[in-house]
Simulated scan of single mutants.
Amino acid sequence: MKFSINRTELANALSVVFKGVSTRSTLPVLAGILVEARQDSIILQATDLELSIQYSAPALVEEEGRTVVPGKLFSDIIKNLPDAAVHVEAADEQAFITCDTSSFSIRALNAEDFPGFPHVDTHQKIEIPFHQFASMVKRVSRVVSRDESRAVLTGVLITLEAGVLRMVATDSYRLAITDAPLPDASADEFQAVISGTFLAEIASLPKTESPVSLALADNQIVVTCEDTVFINRRIEGNFPNYKQLLPDAYTTRATLDVDKLVASVKRASLLGSAASPVRFDLNQDSQTAQITAASQDVGSAQEILPCTVEGEDVEIAFNYAYVLDGLGSIATDQVYLEVQSSLKPGIFRAFEPENFLYLVMPVRIA
């Protein structure tokens, strides 16, 4: 095998594929990246037997062939080379890398021992513009649970109904929902729970005008973006019935400036730990929201924000870190805070045209 390729192109390809390299397997070949030179391109593959990634990049191929290189070492070498053409040659159990005045010789593994890239029969396929996909994922993925004991909560529920794409995530303390129209979808319906960290990695790919394709197999999800294919396991289990948490009405609604609210909550949070509550006192007569935080043996903070308040006066408290997470996902200048009572969840809702809802469980006020 012998080929030449631009260093930046190869480094970008490796940064994507490296996400699939296994770090815990007892099989040494899974810590490697399969490099295959074919016609006028190279194909890179990595897998940990749950997630498989395949990336194609144009290259000047002098001799076709395939080998497996140590994933981390190969990536680190390419990352640190000068910005020039990289020449890669492999024979027997050695790979040779040359760039400008630098040259490396590294041990390689037998490509025959590398698992074949999965071929799965898919159904229910949808395509989403990349910018829309990335925006939706970034809003909800920060809410997924990190607790592996309830695997379904580590995923994002993706559904398509009546031309509307919806992503939902919850860790049982808060809930994020974002909707976007997808009128040209070829599938009538689509439903799957997909790993939140997996979706976040795809959303962090370089921006592209190409769409992201999601296709379902019986227990897998196939995601294609330009020349990259990701295959990952779907998360089994029933996603919580989140719709029953959404109230039909509210007794109080405040309209707040997002930037001012974020700054106010950050200042109030200086007095407490990550779990300290921040209290919202919404007053209809004065048309204000009083933001209060107190910590025993430390002190207290209080700030008054002008806002529009409709309905009854109410006091409610939230974990401040959860509030900041939700507000960080809102792209509009203003946000609604809808409250039923101090003991029922509060809802932060983005203004039109954004369609984003963030529900937070309250902290009991002492």
Rank of each mutant, 00 (worst) to 15 (best):
R7K: 15
S15C: 09
S15N: 11
V16G: 06
V17F: 13
S22L: 06
S25I: 01
V29N: 01
L30Y: 02
A31H: 04
G32R: 00
G32T: 01
Q39L: 15
Q39W: 09
I42H: 04
I43V: 13
Q45N: 13
Q45S: 15
D48L: 14
I53T: 12
Y55L: 09
L60F: 06
G65E: 07
G71E: 01
G71P: 05
N80R: 14
L81N: 07
L81K: 11
D92F: 00
D92S: 11
F96C: 04
T98V: 14
C99I: 02
C99F: 00
T101V: 15
E112G: 13
D113A: 11
P115T: 05
F117L: 08
E127V: 06
H131T: 14
A134F: 00
S135I: 00
V140M: 14
V143Q: 04
R146I: 07
D147P: 01
R150A: 00
A151V: 07
T154W: 05
L157A: 11
I158D: 03
L160Q: 02
A162V: 01
R166A: 06
R166P: 06
V168D: 01
D171S: 08
E189I: 00
S204G: 13
L205S: 08
E209F: 02
V212Y: 06
A215F: 07
A215Y: 08
D218S: 09
N219R: 13
N219T: 12
I221E: 11
T224A: 12
E226Y: 03
D227E: 13
I235D: 13
N241K: 10
K243G: 03
T252V: 07
L256V: 03
V258R: 00
S264E: 01
K266T: 10
A275R: 09
N283Q: 14
N283S: 14
A289C: 15
I291H: 00
A294G: 14
V298A: 13
G299A: 06
G299N: 08
A301N: 12
I304L: 13
G311Q: 11
V314P: 08
V314W: 02
A317K: 05
A317V: 09
L324V: 12
G328N: 15
V335L: 00
V335R: 00
E338C: 02
S341Q: 08
P345W: 02
I347Q: 03
I347G: 07
N355A: 10
L357V: 11
